[in-house]
Amino acid sequence: MLEVRNLVFAYPDQESPWNFHFTVEPGQCIAIHGASGSGKSTLMNLLAGFLEPQSGDILWQDESLRQRAPWQRPITSVFQEHNLFEHLNVETNIGLGIHPGLKLTSEDQQAIEQGLDSVGLEGFGKRLPGDLSGGQRQRVALLRALLRQKPILLLDEPLTGLDSDARHLLRQLLLEEKARGTLIVLASHDKEDRKLLADSVHRL
């Protein structure tokens, strides 16, 4: 179980701090929504370990994650944009998710190829992110996140700005991932995304 326990954070110029508190079970999706500036991205960054809370704790299977660095947390993220290294091709971007030094086995290579096929990007491995559409980039980012096999998936507006085909494909992928037991924290403005994917909704 993921437990966010009285997690308090405020930026230096912020008057009243945020206080996050909720629990989610594996295989469930919690949707976070609220107006711009309500703290959705901040919560994601706190969970991922990119920001340090002032107090409170994040527990996964009763173990605190607060002292763990981002790479040591059982978490992987997909944001609305800037998920890929622009100067590295698709294969390398995904490969770095599997091994941070790109020391890939033949099984890893095969996993990448099959993964690209499964998200409709067969033959796109050598392309640069800049040569892909928004939807294709998000598929690559999501594939990398899924191949990392982390039990918690953070999604910060992952479907915003995508065309309907891309949205449909990514929603299906996320539903499958949820069915496999992955815990999803989804920050989304979109009512339809929340309705389709979320088991509970948390308004900020």
């Binding site: 370990g49 990119f50 993220s77 944001f79 800037h82 290294f85 100067h87 941070p100 030094g101 790109l102």
Partner: peptide, 23 residues
Amino acid sequence: ASRQQADQLGVLGWYRWRWLHWP
């Protein structure tokens, strides 16, 4: 954004130099 990605993926130390800084 790239730093955060690299942090989460564990692309650190020598690997960060090799894949992100060197190019």
